[in-house]
């Protein structure tokens, strides 16, 4: 299959890649761009481990084609921490032990950030429904919810 050149922005930096027309954005990020922070738990949109944002919208990158990223701004877990340190969500996940194996963590952090960008003060129910697309098999979600709530509180008071 002929490959297609694509121009995008990834975590704020201009990025160019070529990919096959049927190649997913997740495969492009992981296999062509060396960004293995997004994980493939299912490849069918059921687990959320591959979550990234595309022009600010939360997507499962396993359900997006690489060619659809043309001209778009992509944000991945690798861009969450800035030069001066961890994002409050990342710090809260460590402080509240919101990860065990950590395979779901990148996707959950990207999804939680997308929520807090829109709604800085979600209720626990809103939070649980927003994260319903992100499977975590280790934690039972309790500490994840506490961590996101703590980060949201801190971000509101900042």
């Amino acid at each position: 299959m002929k490959t297609v050149p694509v121009s995008t922005t990834i975590n704020g930096d201009a990025a160019e890649f070529i990919c096959a027309p049927d190649e997913t954005l997740l495969d492009v990020l992981r296999n062509r761009m060396g960004l293995t922070g997004a994980k493939e738990g299912c490849g069918t949109g059921d687990c959320g481990a591959c979550s990234v944002t595309l022009d600010g919208r939360l997507v499962c990158s396993c359900l997006v084609l690489g060619v659809e990223a043309e001209g778009a701004e992509i944000a991945t877990i690798e861009g969450l921490a800035t030069g001066d340190g961890l994002h409050p969500l990342q710090q809260a996940f460590i402080d509240h032990a919101a990860l065990q194996c950590g395979i779901c963590t990148p996707g959950i952090l990207v999804a939680a950030k997308a929520l807090l960008d829109k709604n800085p003060d979600p209720s626990e129910t809103e939070l649980r429904y927003w994260l319903a697309g992100n499977l975590c098999r280790c934690t039972g979600y309790d500490k994840i919810i506490r961590a996101v709530q703590a980060a949201a509180r801190q971000m509101r008071s900042a």
Partner: peptide
């Protein structure tokens, strides 16, 4: 698959 083999998601659960 996770669609038909349904593991608990955050909205299914109370605090534990």
């Amino acid at each position: 698959g996770f669609l038909d083999y349904r593991v608990p998601v955050a909205s299914d659960l109370p605090p534990i």
